[in-house]
Design a binder for these strands. Structure first.
Length: 275
DNA sequence: ACCCTCACCTGCACGC
DNA sequence: TGCGTGCAGGTGAGGG
């Protein structure tokens, strides 16, 4: 589910609950949550460890530990990180439980079972993220970077924007929103987008991501909300094209279209995004 | 090195 | 009400 803004908000919200806390016990209920470890080995490595910091890289959440490791979490489509008071029952689809020294539990739940957790040595982190494109809000993600990256791609613009080795943080929603803001057709070959349009797209990507984070942050994101509704709820009503098939474009009034692309839905305005 | 399809799961909204 | 179908905000493995 979550794209960069949601992951960023989750990381920010988690910070106040888990930084400085230590884990007295870790339990993994679904072994396949760990692609490269066993529940026993994982639990052993987590026991008695303290959380130093919570960060984000792309759509990964990085929980830095004081034993030289970091816990990497990817929420994929339906993963949730929650903080439970001692007496609260476990939500459905709980796959990992970290008992904390304040009596609360830090939980990973995931309806669709796509999520992933792994422990990575601090000095291996860079290697772990080697294939990821630069962070959108870093200087490395420049209009020039985007221009050369798109120029080298054989695929359509939308497909290229979803490739985390080319651009990090966009998913199906924000890719559509960014292309709409930049007034570019999702089906055009990435290499054929003109330099002027790439500059527009570069601004649009930063704008939709920042805007969504800003709206989400006014929401008072709260991982103790078990219903998980803390993801980007306030921004949802602000989507310009995503999920609006058949509704009118806010700019020109044309009807928003949905079309399949690489097995997924792409929403766009046929008039504003002609080419 | 690239590109495409499929697989990983559950739940929900829809039409019959 | 029940059943089948298609869809859901992501990505990696494995094929060509």
């Amino acid at each position: 589910m979550p794209e960069l803004p949601e992951v960023e908000l989750v990381a920010q919200a988690l910070r106040e609950f888990i930084v400085g806390r230590s884990w007295t016990c870790a339990t993994i209920l679904r072994p396949r949550l760990l692609p490269d470890s066993t529940p026993e080995r994982f639990a052993e490595r987590c026991r008695g460890v303290s959380v130093v910091d919570v960060r984000r890289r792309g759509k990964y959440i990085i929980i830095e530990l004081d034993n030289g490791f970091a816990l990497l979490v990817h929420l994929r489509m339906s993963g949730r990180l929650l903080i439970l008071p001692p007496d609260r029952p476990l939500p459905k689809f709980t796959h990992a439980i970290f008992e904390m020294d304040d009596g609360r539990r830090f939980i990973f739940s995931d309806q669709r079972h796509f999520g992933m957790m792994k422990l990575v040595a601090a000095d291996q982190l860079a290697q772990e993220f080697q294939k990821l494109a630069p962070e959108p809000f870093s200087e490395d993600f420049s209009a020039e970077y985007l221009r050369t990256t798109l120029a080298r791609s054989q695929r359509t613009l939308k497909e290229t924007l979803l490739d985390q080795s080319k651009v990090v943080g966009l998913g199906n929603i924000y890719a559509a929103e960014a292309m709409f803001l930049a007034r570019i057709n999702p089906f055009i070959k990435a290499a054929r987008v003109s330099p002027r349009r790439v500059s527009r797209l570069h601004c649009a990507i930063l704008e939709v991501l920042a805007e969504s984070i800003a709206y989400g942050s006014t929401l008072n994101v709260d991982p103790t909300n078990i219903d998980g509704s803390y993801y980007g709820g306030a921004y949802e009503g602000r989507w310009r094209v995503y999920g609006r098939e058949g509704e009118r474009c806010f700019v020109c009034g044309a009807l928003i279209k949905r079309a399949a692309q690489a097995g997924r839905s792409t929403y766009f305005c046929p008039r504003c995004q002609k080419r």
